[in-house]
């Protein structure tokens, strides 16, 4: 395996773990941070696959704007998810 495959696999594993964690966290603030980690991993994967345009859009929207909007929204509701 060359360096490209190894790094892409690592980045995609981070993305996968972030996505799973975002679903399973009960604390919604933790879930939002996990979602941001997932978006960052996805942006890195786009960058590795030579699509820097999409990577910038994904990093700015996924890790920045959506996180900020979710944090603002969680401030208005309950922080813990109820059963």
């Amino acid at each position: 395996m060359d360096l490209y495959s190894i790094s892409l696999t690592l980045v995609l594993v981070v993305t996968f773990v972030g996505a799973i964690a975002a679903v399973y966290f009960r604390d919604l603030l933790n879930a939002v941070v996990a979602l941001a980690v997932m978006s960052g991993g996805l942006a890195l994967a786009f960058f590795l696959m030579e699509a820097p345009d999409v990577a910038i859009a994904e990093a700015a929207l996924g890790a920045g704007a959506i996180t900020a909007i979710f944090i603002l929204a969680i401030g208005e509701t309950e922080r813990e998810e109820k059963e």
Binding site: P52, D53, A55, I56, A57, A60, L61, G64, A65, A68, I69, I71, L72
Partner: peptide, 21 residues
Amino acid sequence: TPGGGFQGGVVTALAVIMLLA
């Protein structure tokens, strides 16, 4: 360079969103 109107616009808006947060 990579980027353009949409990406740069979102980054610019993020500055305001950060202040709001």
